[in-house]
Design a protein around this nucleic acid. Structure first.
Lengths: 218, 218, 218, 218
DNA sequence: CATGAATGAGGGTTCATTCAT
DNA sequence: CATGAATGAACCCTCATTCAT
C-alpha cells in the first residue's frame, strides 16, 4: 500500500508529522503481532482478536489499517517476499554459466530466509502432527522466471532437453526443504547450503564433494 | 454387563449386524466430509460443524466417532499414509544398488500419491495466495528411515560422505514438489517421475537423459 | 443382559427370580451413583449421563427405573429419611419429661446422621464458596410434629409461653449445624451431641456443664 | 494508548460519561437477573444464557462483565454479605458483656437479612422437595471470629468451658433458621429475633420470657 | 428388559464487526 | 483517528431422550 498516494487536498503534512509516525507504528505493530499469531496457529485458525490482543491497540483500530486477517497476511507477504525479487533478477543477469546461475538463485533464496527468519516462521508451522509449507505467490513467480531461464538454456543447448516442469519443481522442493533445515541449524550458512543444493541438482549425489567440516545439527 | 447372555445363534454383536454396518458407514461419511473440508479451507479453519453439515448426521453424532477435528485429521492420515509404510520397507529390502533403492522409494511414494489423490488433496491446499504443503509424520518417518540407510551406505563407502541432513531434506523436497506436479498432469506416470527424481538426485541435471516423450502439462 | 428371561410372558416369578434380583441391583446401583453425583455437584448441576456413567448400565436403562434425576433424588430421600420417622415417634411417646423428650429427638436425629453419613453427604455439599444444607420434607414433617408437641407442652404449663415458631426453627438449626460438625469428627458421638444440644437449648450456655473430655476436632 | 489525547472538556473517562453509566447499569442488570435465576433454580442449575435472557443485553455482553456464573455469584456475595462485616466488628468492640456481645451479633445478622431480603432469597431456595441454605464464606468467617471471641471469654472465665466447636455451630444454626422464619413474617422484627436467639442460647428454653405480643405467621 | 448410537435442543464461549464517545 | 462495549451469529460440546437391535 502506497501511503504517498493518499495525498489529500489541503497539504496534510504527509511526511514526519507525529500523526503519520503513529500510524506507521500502529500498522507495524499489527503486522508483527499477526506474524506471531500466524506462526503459532496458522492463518486459518488465527483470529483478528488474538492479533489485536498482542497489540496496545483497541479492537476497532484494526479496521483502520486492514479489512481482514487475509489482508494482513497479504501485506506480510508483500512486505517480505517482494524484497527478494530484485536480487534474484540481478543474480540471473550476472550469471556466466549454468552453475553460477543456479547457485546464485539458491544463494539469494537462502540469504533471504536467514535474514528474515521471523517472516519465514509464519510460513513454516509445526502444529501437532503436521509440518506446513507455504509457497507465496512471489516465490512462485520467482521460480517461474527460473523455469523460463532453464528453458532458454535448453534451447541454447546448455542443458539436456529435460522435463523442465519436473526440474523446476525439484529445484523448488530442494530450496524449501534444505532452507528449512538450514534455519534450524545453530549458525546457518546460506553459502554452504547453496553450494550443496547446486552440486546435488547439477552433479548428482555421486559427484557431491566430501564433507570437510562438520556442521552443527539440531 | 452380562457377557454370557450374548450367546445367541449365528455370531453376536461384532461383525455384520445392521448396527455395525451403519457405524462404519457413518465413520466413513465423516472422514470423507472432513477430507473435503480440510482440502478446501485447511485444518485450522475447518469447523466440526461444517464437516457434519456435509453429512446427513446430527451434530452430536460426530462425537460418537471422534473427539475433535484434529482427531479426524489424524484418522485420515493413519488410514491413508500408513498404508505406504510396508511397501517402502519391502522396496528397501529388495534393493540391490543405491540406484534401485532410491528409485524404489520415490516410486512407492508417487504410486501412493496417484492412487490416493483425494487424500493428498487434503495435504495440498491452494487457497488464495498460498500453496500449502503438509508433511505427515508418516512421511517424515519414511524419510528418516531413508536417512539411516543413507548413512549406512556412506559408512560402507557406497556414497560420498555428504551432509545427510541436507540430502534427506532435499530428497523430501524433490519428492513433494515433483509429486505435486505429477498430480496435476492428465495422465500421471509415477514410474517416469521416479526415474526423473532418481536421475536428478543421483546423477545431477547434466546427466539427465533427453526427454523422449512430450508430456501433457497443466 | 438376561436375554433368556424374555420368553415368559405369563407368570413372571416375582420373588427371587434372577430377573428380579438383577432389577433390584440395577436400581440400587443407580441410586448409589446418583448419591455420589448429587454429593459432588449438587442436584441442580447433576446430569443423568453422569449418574449412568458411574454404573455398568447403558444410558437407556436408566429410564426403566426412573424418569428424571429429580425422581432418583426423591427416591433417595424416601429411602433414607423415612426410616427416621418411626423412631422419632417412639421417642416422643416414651418421653417422661421435656428434657428427655427433646434429648430423644436430638439423639434420633444424630444417630440417623451418623449411621447414614453417605446419604447425608448428598444433603451437605461443599462446592467452592458454599456450604449447602437441604431440609428434606421428611425432616420438616418431623420437626413440625415437634412443634405440635411443644405447643402442647406450653398448653400444659410445662414450658413458658414462648414463640414456638422461632423455637422450632432454632431447634432445627441447632440440629443441622451441630449434626454437621458431628459428622466431621473422627469418632462422632451422637449421644454427646444430643446432650450438648439439649443442654444448650433447655438451659442455655451458662448452664452448660464443663467439658470433661477433650474431643477430636477436624 | 495515548492518555494525553483524552483531554477533552468536562472530565474524562472514569466518572459520569454516558459509557460509564451504561456499564454500571449493565453490570447491575446482570447481577439482578442472576439473583433471580439463582433464587429460582439454584446456582448449579442456573445457566448464563438464562441470566442474560432476563436482560436486554446480547449473550456475548455477559462476558464483558463476568467470566462465569460462579463469578457473578461471587460478586453477589461480595456486594451483599461483605457489608455486614464492619458492623459485626463494631458490635463486638462495643459489647460490655457476653449478653450484649452475642445479642449484638444476632442483631446485625438479622438486620442484614431483613434489609437485603432479595439477596437472601438467592441463598434460600425452596425448589420441589428441598429447602436449601448456603453459608457464604463471609458468614463463616464472621462466625469464626465469634468462635475466637467465645474461646477468649472461656479463657477469662466469663463462660463455662464448653465445646466451642458445637457452640459456634449451634449459634450459626439458630441464626440461619430463626432468620429464615423471620423473613417469612409480614413485619419482621430483627430486634425481637435477636432477643429470642440470645435468650435461648444464653439462658435456655426455661429461662425464656413469656410472649407478650402475638406475631403474624405465614 | 438392556444396549448404546442417533438426535437436536441448548448451554458456554469466542468472534468479527459496528459505532457512540 | 482511537477506543472498547455491544451485538448476535456461529462454534464447540454435552445432554436428555428415543428406539432399533
Amino acid at each position: 500500500m502506497d501511503q504517498a498516494a493518499k495525498n489529500q487536498p489541503e497539504a496534510s503534512t504527509d511526511n514526519g508529522s507525529k500523526r503519520e509516525i503513529t500510524k506507521l507504528q500502529n500498522r507495524q505493530a499489527i503486522l508483527e503481532a499477526a506474524a506471531e499469531v500466524f506462526a503459532e496457529v496458522g492463518v486459518g485458525a488465527a483470529s483478528i482478536r488474538e492479533i489485536v490482543r498482542r497489540t496496545d491497540l483497541a479492537s476497532g483500530t484494526f479496521y483502520n489499517y486492514f479489512t481482514s486477517k487475509e489482508d494482513v497476511f497479504q501485506a506480510l507477504l508483500d512486505e517480505s517476499a517482494l524484497s527478494m525479487r530484485p536480487e534474484l533478477k540481478a543474480e540471473r543477469l550476472a550469471a556466466t554459466s549454468i552453475e553460477s546461475f543456479i547457485e546464485g538463485c539458491f544463494r539469494v533464496f537462502f540469504d533471504y530466509l536467514v535474514s528474515d527468519q521471523a517472516m519465514f516462521a509464519v510460513l513454516r508451522r509445526n502444529s501437532g502432527a503436521l509440518r506446513v509449507r507455504m509457497h507465496t505467490p512471489q516465490m512462485l513467480v520467482a521460480f517461474e522466471e527460473l523455469e523460463e531461464d532453464i528453458e532458454r538454456a535448453i534451447g541454447q543447448g546448455l542443458l539436456p532437453d529435460i522435463d523442465t516442469d519436473f526440474l523446476t519443481s525439484a529445484l523448488i522442493g530442494v530450496a524449501f526443504e534444505v532452507g528449512d533445515r538450514l534455519l534450524r541449524r545453530q549458525s546457518p550458512d546460506p553459502r554452504e547450503a547453496a553450494r550443496f543444493a547446486t552440486a546435488l541438482t547439477l552433479g548428482g549425489v555421486k559427484a557431491l564433494p566430501l564433507k570437510k567440516t562438520s556442521v552443527a545439527k539440531t
